[in-house]
Write a protein that binds this DNA or RNA. Structure first.
Lengths: 188, 188
DNA sequence: GTCTATAGGTGGATAGAC
DNA sequence: GTCTATCCACCTATAGAC
């Protein structure tokens, strides 16, 4: 399959960005992992910025697909929020940071295209969460002050930050506790 | 003054790490900013890891000094928390990330010494916050569920995460809103 | 303490054969 | 599509003169 190599490149690159950051890996790392040469990687992704952009696009697509499954499997807003946080926790349990959380830290050195792609990921997260929060308020299953958008932004920030620090301590429980606390504050 | 150059190096390096990350700057960047050669930088900081370690130590010292001033100037726990959050906001307003928040993202590529120095910064933050939270609970000026240590960890994570994302949007208000929300959840 | 000069390595990227 | 070979810029770091 022609496309198969590109997918494997993305798989390895994704893991590298989530553990070492966009500035913390090179084409040589991917080449070594896949037993190919750097030159052949440039055939699939001419510049590193191309690889980075395709990485974010795929990550967002997969993430939104997971949110779609949450919508399909969970009815109540509290359960949706719990599953949302569980996605983050699974990433951390794999020893990784959220791809876009990582890129947010590296914002100052990112190419323009990757910057807006990264923000788009957070915008979509906020949009989905806002819907869940509004649903919960309507149903009376959630209780929070202020706007749903503001609460959504705060939750995303809290989860990303907790994840980043917990990873530095190699302590998933630390993330879990912060996550539980954040959900309780929304009445979940 | 002999020590003056080292301080200026640290000033520039600090700004670079807070905006571009530890892996996002080089001795050449500092050399250019200070109109000296790279070689002379190695006289003050033989290896980049030395520079990194001294950077964290100084950042923590200054941060703890700021917390000491908060203790001296604010009496009530809620006011202390507000001033704590204001320190973060001032950093963000300067277009910077928290030095250690930045390093937490780069954890996967950091030398061992910098890893433990970075965690020490967060440990000290937690310790101070825990004291303030216990004070507030004792005085009845704060109200939160669970342990003070857990609440402290959650607050640190929420502020770091909100800061990181807000910076990507160039939007200090976004941070401020998340910060206010986090403080309110502690009853402040 | 700061300089010139340079070593030795790695970064992203390209040309051209197969 | 993948390879060999190579370019050039940049990286951290050191030697040794001043």
């Amino acid at each position: 399959m022609a496309n198969d190599t590109a997918q494997r490149v993305l798989d390895v690159a994704e893991q590298l960005v989530q553990t070492r950051g966009y500035n913390g890996f090179s084409y040589a790392d991917i080449a070594q992992a896949l037993h190919v040469t750097k030159a052949s990687l440039h055939y699939h992704f001419p510049a590193k910025a191309d690889l980075g952009a395709r990485l974010i696009e795929r990550y967002e697509r997969n993430f939104l697909a997971a949110l779609g499954r949450v919508d399909a499997q969970a009815k109540g807003a509290p359960e949706k929020l719990r599953r949302y946080a569980a996605i983050y926790e699974a990433v951390l349990r794999a020893g990784r940071m959220c791809l876009c959380g990582m890129l947010a830290a590296e914002f100052g050195t990112l190419p323009d295209g990757m910057r807006s792609d990264m923000r788009h990921f957070f915008d979509e997260n906020e949009r989905w969460l806002k819907g869940v929060l509004q649903q919960g308020k309507r149903e009376g299953t959630l209780a929070f002050a202020g706007s749903a958008a503001g609460a959504a932004q705060a939750l995303i920030g809290a989860l990303e930050g907790a994840m980043m620090i917990a990873r530095s301590y190699g302590d998933v429980d630390r993330f879990h506790a912060a996550s539980e606390r954040a959900l309780k504050e929304l009445g979940a």
